Amino acid sequence: MSPAAEPLRDEGTRTQVVVAGAVAGLVSRFCIAPLDVVKIRLQLQYHSLVDPLSVAASFRRKPLGVIEVARDILRHEGITGFWKGNIPAEGLYLSYGAAQFLAYRSTTQALDALTEDEHGKQRWHVPGTAKSFIAGAVAGTAATTVTYPLDLLRTRFAAQGTEKVYESLIASIRDIKRNEGMGGYFRGLGAGVGQIVPYMGLFFASYEGLKPALADVQLPFGSGDAIAGISASIFSKTVVFPLDTVRKRLQVQGPTRQKYVGGHKTPVYDRGVFGTLTMIVRKEGTMGLYRGLSVSLVKAAPASAITMWTYERALDALKRIQEEDG
């Protein structure tokens, strides 16, 4: 196997993987923040197909298209409106990136240990894509659960229009704890885990499957890592996007529900992930589950390319530093 085809699990020490993953998440989040805010606003538009009068009213009151939503944010909230929720989001991406790559590396090492005997020989053969899928799913579950409160805060701040729901990050943490309890920080976690397990499994399996084939592709900023990251992310994100919409809808439930974009039209979802999924389909049609997908895919391409490119470069830099110091 050529060096370019080596899987992520065999590269770098544990500390190097954590630092490189954190840096990758931090850089990626800053670059795609505006697209993330627009996507969340689109996902939280509630247009019932049951009540035509309701649809007409919401059409007049809230723009529906990507350009219209972006223009509306710029006009009423200023350029900084595109970075609403950026503080918890930076914390989310920073910690998520580190937790994700650390869990991925640890899981693949554990799988290798299980399939080898004490002499290093394989007891049974497990395809590399299967290992990548399992490790990606475990990594995604662990990272999602640990960082979920930050994800919820990111969504709630991004969902604030001209009316402020929380005065500050500290105030939001205090308010949720007082009015919703600890469970308030984990609204929609089931949808988050249900989304991330197949997403991360499919993403890492696709990425590591494509990476060797694209190893010789030369780009202005490096090898085929970026192309592999883009392709893997677009494929996996499209498959699980409905659960992402469900997660966003559930995250803004609670006593402040009617203060976010959508206002008094914000439905009550109190029947769990599956109940929310079926309710959206019944009232808004199947397309209601995919509102914001185009922005999500546009976001996925630069986000994944930046993440994987930065991760590979940061890891290489850390390894060179260690070699020079060694």
Rank of each mutant, 00 (worst) to 15 (best):
P3I: 01
E11N: 08
A22R: 10
A24P: 01
S28D: 05
L44D: 04
S48L: 13
D51C: 10
R61F: 00
R61P: 05
L74R: 14
I79P: 02
G97Y: 06
F101E: 03
L102M: 11
A103C: 04
S106T: 06
T107Q: 14
L111D: 15
D112N: 13
D112Q: 11
E116P: 08
Q122V: 05
W124R: 12
T141N: 04
V146L: 09
T147F: 06
L152P: 00
L152G: 09
R156I: 00
Q160G: 10
V165Q: 01
L169A: 06
G183E: 03
G184H: 07
G190H: 13
Y199M: 07
G201Q: 02
F203G: 08
L210T: 11
D216Y: 04
L219G: 05
I234G: 10
T238R: 00
V240A: 03
P242L: 11
L243N: 00
L243W: 01
D244Q: 13
V246K: 02
V246I: 12
Q253L: 11
V273W: 11
F274N: 03
K283I: 03
R291W: 02
G292C: 00
A301Y: 05
A303W: 05
R313K: 15
A317T: 15
R320I: 09
R320M: 06
I321V: 07
